[in-house]
Nucleic acid binder design. Sequence first.
DNA 1: AGCTTAATGCAAATGCGTATCATATTCATC
DNA 2: GATGAATATGATACGCATTTGCATTAAGCT
Lengths: 139, 139
Amino acid sequence: MAAENQELRNAGLKVTLPRIKILQILESADPGSRHMSAEDVYRALLQSGEDVGLATVYRVLTQFETAGIVTRHNFETGHSMFEIAKDDHHDHMVCLSSGEVIEFSDSLIEERQRQIAQEHGFELIDHSLVLYVRKSSDD
Amino acid sequence: MAAENQELRNAGLKVTLPRIKILQILESADPGSRHMSAEDVYRALLQSGEDVGLATVYRVLTQFETAGIVTRHNFETGHSMFEIAKDDHHDHMVCLSSGEVIEFSDSLIEERQRQIAQEHGFELIDHSLVLYVRKSSDD
DNA sequence: AGCTTAATGCAAATGCGTATCATATTCATC
DNA sequence: GATGAATATGATACGCATTTGCATTAAGCT
């Protein structure tokens, strides 16, 4: 319980109830739903009985992003998705049937991307790779 | 000039002035500015002296997308970008300094993606790869 | 040309996200 | 533990890109 407090402190953020709660929600999300939209987090808060405003959720998520606590993804769905930042970089695979999001990482692709940018006279700053897939079985 | 008419007819779309004009603008865009937002197209229309509403531009672009005439991309910039659909698949490199969009294609990455999806028990339906880069010189 | 249907233009509505601002809360100091 | 300055919060207004409703206009068949 003091863990979140410390994490916030380390990030230079004041320890407030909304921030603790949001951090807990993000951290306790199981693998299948690690990626949450601001609305998702907001709904989770309400279900936990916490009375936090949606504006605060957006603010806190943005602060967390700046602090490196969470990572923001803009999938083609139009709205941002957030997930607890992990040390390892990874890309995403979104199942078009179930909406499931699977993480993966491939050093071959990573390296190739750097090369390609370089070949065009650019420096690779960031990238976004999302595979849209379907279960091999169910067509 | 009849070329656009035929293309629209083939797509099952009524041949209207806005549609012809928008198609022409997209087709005549030079390589450096192949990717246009709805606003871009709208401005181009106004400059051509055409009096087309922004709503129509959005509607037509969406219809074109459905018809396979254009492809829509959702870069992290927040608004959709459209480009005339080409047969060959390609990915994008967006310069964070200039906004310039460069197209590229890499069979190595393409193949690896298919493999990765398969390894996870999925079939690769589509993907989105965008490299965010900066000119190697200007830091 | 006339008529039916679909397309357009405008304006208002939407949806996600951000900014404003008065109030409440944190946290360092006493 | 109380006090006060600084920051965070919540409600709401706002901004932006895109969509929608609806009256008007244009397309295209006869």
